[in-house]
Every structure is written in C-alpha cells, then in structure tokens.
C-alpha cells in the first residue's frame, strides 16, 4: 500500500513539473513580449522596462523558469494592475464563490447521473434507456453559457421562479467557510440557506448539465458491460435477488471509471465556472478571469491557469488513491 501511494505521488509530481514547464513555455516563452502582455496595452516604455526587470526577463530561460516556479509556490502570483491588488489576495477572496458553485454543480452532475442511470438500468426499460441516451447527448452538446442565458430568460424573466443575475444573494453575517449555504447552516439560519440555494440553482445546473451527460454515458456503458459479464449469470444461479445483484455487485464493478471521471469533473468545474459566472454576475474567479482577459491584465489569468492545473493533478492523485482503496485489483498489483 505504501509503495502504491509513493508511486502515485511520484508520478503526480512529475506531471506537475511537466505542466509547469508547459505553462511557462506557453505563457512566458512565446514570441510576444510577456512584459507588454503583463503591463497591458496602455503601458509606456518606462513601465514595460520596469516590468521586464521585475519579471526577470533579462535572465536566461532556465533561471526564468525557476523564478516562475518558486514565486508561484511561495504565493507570489504577481500584481493585478487594473485592480491595484496582489493576484493572490484577489483569488483567495473570490475562491469560495467559485468553489461553492462548482461544488453544487458537481453534486447535481454526479449524484443526478448515478441515480438516474442506475435506476434506468435496473428498471431495464427500452424506452427509458433510449430517452436517457438522448438526454445525455443533449446535455453534452449544450454550451453551458447559452444554457445559462436560456435559464435566465425563461425561469427569471418569463416565469420569475428564480433570482436574476444578482450573484450569490445576501451574505451570511458570520463567514466561516465562505460557502454561503454552509455558513447559513452553521448559523442555524434555514431561511438564509434556502435563499443561498435559490441563487445557486440556475448557475449550478447550467454548469452541471455537460458533466451530467458525460457521466450518464460513461456509467451506462460500464453498467451494460458488467451486466453482460458471466459472473452476473452466476449470481442469478446462486439465487441472489435482482436488486441485490444490481446494487451490490454490478454497480460496484461498473462504478470505478465513473468515480475517476467524477473527480476530474470536480476539478474541471472549478475552472469551467468561467463560462457561467459572468452571466449570473457571480463574484467568483471566473468573472475575475474574464475581466482580466478583457482588460488584458493577464497576471490573474496566468495564476488561474497554473492553479487549475495543480488542482486538476491533485484531484487526479486523490482519485487514484481512492481507486486503489476501492478496487482490490489495483491495490495489490
């Protein structure tokens, strides 16, 4: 087990190294002058020269890379000129909003997909299965930002069922975790909890639909594979009831790829919220990043990209370890 853990952690570190080189290559070593990129289009030569020196762009590439990596890991993520604020504090300030949105989107996508797919496969109805397949295609193909727009037009403007583009709603008085729903619960304020959920509903569902469709397709295919395995016939021949066969044998066997994919989706959603935050005026990292792109204030965007990759690799690693814990074949090999 220790060997397994070490091997996985080692390979994650190698991947982080590769990803950092790639990010460095793409963002810093490109022909365009990164100093101009960072300083923005309105900077004069003096500012650019200063930024060049600040960035250490006069040094050799390997030295620049080392600077880049060390400053990232000590939390020196640069300075946002348009916000007049260090990037690190900007991001930490807005992380909870994005994290809460991603978390609820994940809950919808993951548990929704598992529940619906397992139920449909258990009921073994041809028509339900066809419907689910079509639903998964629609979900995977719909652009989340367009869906968010449609949601607002229908459920806010026409029907008035959900709040409009006003962000997260009123903040709870005591902020512990930064996640409004949890902070309201901690304060015992259930009305506030409801309000927070009400604001989360549309953006998180818009964000969740794509991953939902993907997970439905994945789990459905895996369930079909396992259902046709000989050991399922053996279980029936033992006299095991269908419900037990389905939930205690078939599901655990078919579930592992979905678990892996689920972890990656959670990590992707953190970055993917870029696509719906703006429409709901959600005060998260996504809005920050788009503003950064529009103002050509790239320090924030660069930090966001590296952060996304690290979260992605970290979650990947956690899932790998979890996978080994759940699947005896991986753990012992």
């Amino acid at each position: 087990m220790i060997d397994f853990l070490l091997a996985r952690i080692g390979s994650a570190i190698v991947t982080i190294f590769g990803a950092s080189v790639l990010a460095f290559a793409v963002l810093r070593a490109v022909p365009t002058n990164p100093a101009r990129l960072i300083a923005g289009p309105f900077a004069n030569d003096e500012v650019i020269a200063q930024v060049t020196a600040n960035l250490g762009l006069d040094k050799s590439l390997p030295v620049q890379y080392l600077d880049y990596v060390t400053s990232f890991f000590i939390g020196d993520w640069g300075f946002s000129y348009s916000a007049g604020q260090p990037v690190l504090s900007q991001i930490t300030e807005r992380l909870p909003a994005s994290a809460e949105l991603a978390l609820y989107a994940f809950l919808f996508a993951f548990f929704g997909a598992v529940l619906v797919t397992v139920l449909v496969s258990f009921l073994n109805s041809r028509w339900l299965d066809r419907f689910l397949r079509l639903l998964s295609f629609i979900s995977v193909g719909v652009p989340p930002f367009w869906l968010a727009l449609l949601f607002l037009m229908v459920f806010f403007e026409r029907l008035g069922w959900f709040p409009g583009p006003v962000g997260r709603g009123p903040a709870p008085t005591g902020l512990y975790t930064g996640l409004f729903t949890i902070d309201y619960l901690l304060a015992g304020d259930f009305a506030g909890f409801g309000t927070a959920l009400h604001h989360l509903a549309l953006p998180s569902i818009a964000l969740a639909l794509g991953p939902f469709g993907y997970l439905v397709r994945l789990l459905r295919a895996n369930l079909l594979d396992i259902i046709n395995e000989p050991f399922v016939t053996v279980l029936h021949a033992k006299g095991v009831a269908p419900i037990s066969t389905h939930f205690r044998h078939i599901l655990p066997n078919a579930f592992l790829p979905t678990l892996t994919a689920g972890g990656l989706i959670l990590a992707q959603l953190l970055g993917g919220s870029v696509l719906v935050e703006r429409i709901f005026v959600w005060p998260g990292i996504g809005t920050l990043v788009i503003d950064g792109i529009l103002r050509q204030d790239y320090a924030v965007v660069q930090a966001f990209i590296m952060l996304s990759a690290i979260i992605y690799i970290g979650v990947n690693l956690l899932v790998d370890i979890l996978y080994g814990y759940v699947d005896p074949r991986v753990r012992r090999s």
Binding site: V14, V26, F304, A309
Partner: peptide, 24 residues
Amino acid sequence: SRIMDAILAFPPLILAMAVAIGLG
C-alpha cells in the same frame, strides 16, 4: 508520452485559454 501527460494535466478548456492568451 511525458509531454502528452503534461498537456493532459490541464483541463482542456483552460489549456486552450492559456495558448490563446500566450499567442495573442
């Protein structure tokens, strides 16, 4: 293979964003 692993370490949308910004 290692380079491909590094590419796969990014969520696809984020990677495309990074390149689009890096190249202008």
